[in-house]
């Protein structure tokens, strides 16, 4: 099949098999390895990318579903101005350890901050529960998010 889409602000055209996953398309065909594979069953959030601005698990999304749509991966977000604040907050709070969950988590946070879904403690707990992190114990991530949402002490 042939698809056309926007990836990180640039038009992309590709021929691919209908069963190819968006995760494999991004990693193997486009070399965007910042998107990580872990659970394969839409539980861990490591493969999260933004599809038309909304977080999706690319391990459970077909590449053809992205036809005609806009995909943002961590490599694309890192080029944007808004990324600087996220990078500062995460680095300052040491909210990065092994870094494997980080790209998916950062994309999720970026999307949810824009929606105002992380403005409360309950919102953070509920809305970020779909991104697993085995290293941090989450406290550092919550501190970084509070800072970004303007609800905590920087």
């Amino acid at each position: 099949m042939e698809i056309e889409l926007i990836v990180n602000g640039r038009p992309v055209a590709a021929r691919l098999e209908p069963q190819q996953l968006l995760l494999d398309f991004l990693r193997d065909d486009l070399g965007l390895t910042g998107t990580k594979r872990s659970c394969d069953v839409q539980v861990c959030g490591a493969c999260t990318v933004l599809l038309d601005g909304l977080p999706v698990s690319s391990c459970c999304t077909l590449a053809v579903e992205a036809h005609g749509r806009d995909v943002l991966t961590i490599e694309g977000l890192a080029e944007r101005d808004e990324f600087a604040a996220i990078e500062r907050a995460f680095a300052r709070h040491a909210a990065v350890q092994c870094g494997y969950c980080t790209p998916g988590l950062v994309l999720t946070i970026h999307a949810l901050l824009a929606e105002g879904a992380l403005a409360t403690e309950d919102g953070i707990r509920r809305n970020l529960a779909g991104n697993l992190c085995r290293c941090t114990g989450y406290k550092a991530i919550v501190e970084a998010v509070r800072e970004l949402a303007g609800t905590g002490n920087p």
Binding site: L32, T33, K36, A91, A94, V96, C98, G99, Y100, V106
Partner: peptide, 17 residues
């Protein structure tokens, strides 16, 4: 701050896979 924070946040850190 961690010396690897920027690389990891930007998705540039390379893992074996």
């Amino acid at each position: 701050e961690r010396v690897d924070a920027g690389e990891k946040l930007r998705g540039q850190a390379r893992f074996t896979g």
